[in-house]
């Protein structure tokens, strides 16, 4: 009899533990995933431009310690020696330097064009256009030794298909601000 009672006891205990474990799984599975994936998620966020911050036309935005303003976005039509159906696009920014530690704040600086479908173009090296002396690229500006209050003129050159010129918007991402990036709106938006 006692043995049977014992068996019944054990059986009940097991049921209880089964129920408890099921509830525990609800906590443990997300917890384990969080603990295991913490470093990877952090790396994913720090390395990629994922979430946009929109900047209205004509306005400037504080980003990576400085104030960024889109001054111009235009196509350089009529150039020779380019594949048919393509057009070079120039994006000009005026950046007022706030924190001059650009080598850290602007690390991995990436200027791109994003179209309506979310496709991204990086600056090209296939097209070289003459530019005034005071114009720099984002990367060269990092090493320019700019001080607080300086205004940097940045220009990046892209090569895009002709049919996307109406929908492309310039965007900027820097290491210190990722996963956020600036997406500049145009006048007509």
């Amino acid at each position: 009899m006692t043995a049977q009672d014992l068996a019944q006891d054990n059986r009940l205990g097991e049921k209880k533990w089964r129920r408890r474990s099921l509830w525990a799984l609800l906590v443990l599975i997300p917890l384990t995933l969080a603990v295991e994936a913490y470093d990877s998620v952090k790396a994913l966020l720090v390395d990629n431009d994922l979430f946009e911050r929109r900047v209205a036309w004509g306005e400037s935005a504080h980003f990576g310690g400085s104030d960024w303003k889109l001054t111009d976005l235009r196509g350089a039509f009529g150039m020779k020696n380019l594949p048919p159906g393509t057009v070079p696009v120039l994006a000009d920014f005026a950046v007022t330097v706030g924190n001059p530690d650009l080598q850290n704040l602007w690390l991995g600086c990436k200027v791109m064009l994003i179209d309506a479908e979310g496709r991204r173009w990086l600056p090209t090296s296939a097209v070289r256009l003459n530019a005034p002396d005071n114009v720099q690229t984002c990367i060269s500006a990092i090493f320019s030794g700019a001080k607080t209050g300086d205004v940097l003129n940045l220009r990046e050159t892209f090569l895009v298909p002709k049919d996307v010129t109406n929908t492309i918007r310039p965007a900027v991402g820097v290491g210190s601000e990722r996963p956020y990036f600036l997406l500049f709106q145009m006048e007509k938006d």
Binding site: W17, R18, S21, L22, A24, L25, L28, I29, L31, T32, V35, E36
Partner: peptide
């Protein structure tokens, strides 16, 4: 019969071991 307990135990092991 035992999968919830076993899985919970494995998860505890993963978290503890990783820590």
């Amino acid at each position: 019969r035992f999968w919830p307990q076993l899985v919970a135990m494995v998860l505890l092991g993963i978290v503890g071991g990783d820590l």
